[in-house]
Amino acid sequence: MKQSLLTVLIVFTAFVSTFAQTTEISDVTLQNKIDVDGTSLILNGAGVRSKYFLSLYVGSLYLPAKVSDANKILYSKELKMIQLDIISSLITAEKMEETVRAGFKNSLNGNTAPLQKEIDAFISVFSEEIETEDIFKFVSDGTSTKAYKNDKLLTTVEGEEFQRALFGIWLGNKPADKKLKNLMLGQ
């Protein structure tokens, strides 16, 4: 009897341990801890980006340690990553480009001219059609930003101001979605 109880306890502990390694949001399974370029990052927070009652993507923020201060993240030179898991077939390359351009405009308080070259280079990330279950990752060390689609590196854009503007789309003073910002900040 003790042997059976011990076996059940071990199996249960293993199950709970495995389950605790992931977080599920809107049928998207996110790893709570990942390795990026040899640096361990943890899931700071995540949520669904919705517009007009439609769920579009799951946005998640990964950092070396939990941080709830958006400005600290935006100005940090520590490795950080925003991941977008597409969950809607309504997202097209054209709509994503339009939305991201509007996001840069909001992030930069309407003055995109100083970063227009970088923004245009980054926008090429959305040149191919976007499908449900595509995953975009934006990884920055504070000075350069790498953009991936389905783990394929698409572009690298240099500059602190650019990475601040990009991450500001989700974490800035005029975020794409205030509720998502708060969830990404773990609030």
Score class of each variant (00 low, 15 high):
residue 123 I to G: 03
residue 12 F to W: 12
residue 76 S to T: 10
residue 114 P to E: 00
residue 41 L to M: 06
residue 135 I to D: 00
residue 1 M to I: 12
residue 133 E to Q: 15
residue 3 Q to W: 12
residue 123 I to A: 02
residue 138 F to I: 15
residue 120 D to H: 01
residue 101 R to W: 11
residue 156 T to S: 06
residue 157 V to K: 04
residue 97 E to V: 07
residue 153 L to D: 05
residue 148 Y to L: 02
residue 165 A to K: 00
residue 177 D to S: 01
residue 126 F to Q: 08
residue 11 V to M: 13
residue 80 K to M: 06
residue 97 E to Y: 06
residue 172 G to N: 01
residue 173 N to C: 08
residue 181 K to M: 05
residue 16 V to Q: 10
residue 81 M to L: 03
residue 164 R to M: 08
residue 9 L to V: 11
residue 161 E to M: 12
residue 18 T to H: 14
residue 33 K to R: 14
residue 92 T to H: 03
residue 164 R to P: 01
residue 17 S to D: 10
residue 58 V to Y: 04
residue 128 E to W: 01
residue 145 T to V: 00
residue 111 N to D: 15
residue 151 D to H: 08
residue 22 T to N: 13
residue 7 T to Q: 12
residue 135 I to G: 00
residue 44 N to I: 10
residue 14 A to T: 15
residue 10 I to C: 12
residue 158 E to I: 03
residue 60 S to Q: 02
residue 160 E to W: 02
residue 159 G to L: 01
residue 81 M to Q: 09
residue 81 M to D: 08
residue 103 G to Y: 00
residue 147 A to D: 06
residue 33 K to P: 10
residue 80 K to H: 02
residue 46 A to N: 05
residue 183 L to W: 04
residue 138 F to P: 06
residue 159 G to A: 07
residue 174 K to P: 08
residue 184 M to A: 04
residue 183 L to H: 00
residue 96 M to L: 14
residue 1 M to V: 13
residue 90 L to S: 14
residue 97 E to Q: 15
residue 99 T to S: 15
residue 169 I to T: 04
residue 15 F to Y: 15
residue 25 I to L: 09
residue 68 S to A: 07
residue 102 A to I: 10
residue 29 T to D: 11
residue 67 V to T: 12
residue 164 R to N: 02
residue 101 R to V: 11
residue 39 T to D: 15
residue 47 G to A: 06
residue 138 F to V: 14
residue 135 I to T: 10
